[in-house]
């Protein structure tokens, strides 16, 4: 198989797996408990790292751009700038990449180990569909958790930016807050929630696909895990461009 054929084949299998995960939900059992458990692991478990990355991203944004804004006499708009950047780009993408690293790898490693130790075969032999029991709950949990984590990243980023502008650049807090509030528009909220929804789908399906496709023992688990994280990170960044363009067309964002 050529490289292109291999790529197309993987895309087909990945799409089929994702499709099956949703299609088979129409019949019982639905494993609601697994979904909640995964939301806990993915959402609550990732909150600390998302808080940290969000906070420092917002802080460094202000650090880098305050003086440029000041040059144009627009330092009062720094809150607006931070909010726009976070809501539209950095919040969703950073949360996506962090979760791809933390959760995508864990999912692939877990499913991969289950494959090589025959636990997936055992599960099928015991009459449970691994797509329903393992894949669907993880993808759904990511669809729920990632938008929420993005909001967490956004808020903590704004706080980070606010603290930096107050304590390093002596900007009045009320000025900062009012420019932040100016930037929290309906369109920005839609963008910041739609993007991670797609990123969650990407992370979940890539991680599960790579995990279930593991071959070659424990070494294979390592290889799959690496590939899963690399692939989902790259796809997130590429998809981000097209999503941005599509959302601009749909919402008519012409700022």
């Amino acid at each position: 198989m050529s490289f292109l054929q291999q790529g197309l084949y993987e895309l087909q299998e990945l799409t089929l797996l994702t499709f099956r995960a949703f299609y088979r939900l129409r019949k019982k059992p639905r494993y609601f408990r697994e979904v909640i458990q995964q939301i806990d692991i993915i959402g609550v478990g990732s909150t600390p790292i998302i808080l940290l990355t969000g906070f420092f991203t917002g802080a460094v944004l202000v650090l880098q751009s305050f003086q440029i804004l000041a040059y144009y006499g627009a330092q009062s708009q720094v809150g607006r700038m931070v909010t726009f950047s976070l809501f539209r780009e950095l919040g969703p993408v950073l949360a996506g990449l962090m979760v791809a690293g933390r959760i995508g790898s864990a999912i692939t490693a877990e499913l991969g180990s289950m494959v090589v130790s025959q636990q997936i075969d055992a599960m099928r032999a015991l009459g449970t569909d691994p797509v329903k029991k393992l894949v669907a709950p993880r993808i759904i949990a990511l669809l729920v958790a990632l938008p929420l984590l993005t909001v967490v990243a956004n808020v903590s980023g704004i706080i980070g930016g606010g603290i930096t502008s107050k304590y390093i650049f002596n900007l009045d807090t009320t000025v900062f807050i009012s420019s932040v509030l100016d930037a929290i528009t309906t369109k920005n909220i839609i963008v910041t929630l739609v993007k991670p929804f797609f990123f969650g789908l990407i992370i979940g399906s890539v991680a599960c696909y790579k995990g279930l496709g593991t071959t070659g023992g424990t070494v294979g688990v390592g290889i799959s895990t690496t590939r899963s994280v690399v692939l989902s990170s790259i796809v997130i960044i590429i998809a981000d461009f097209f999503l941005t363009r599509a959302l601009q067309n749909i919402l008519g964002i012409d700022f």
Partner: peptide, 23 residues
């Protein structure tokens, strides 16, 4: 298909090489 097999698998028990217990 896989969902149809689930019914057939109910009457089959399988012992795997290393036990394949859920960790």
């Amino acid at each position: 298909t896989e969902p149809e097999m689930m019914r057939v698998r109910q009457k089959i028990g399988m012992v795997f090489q290393e036990g394949a217990l859920f960790d």
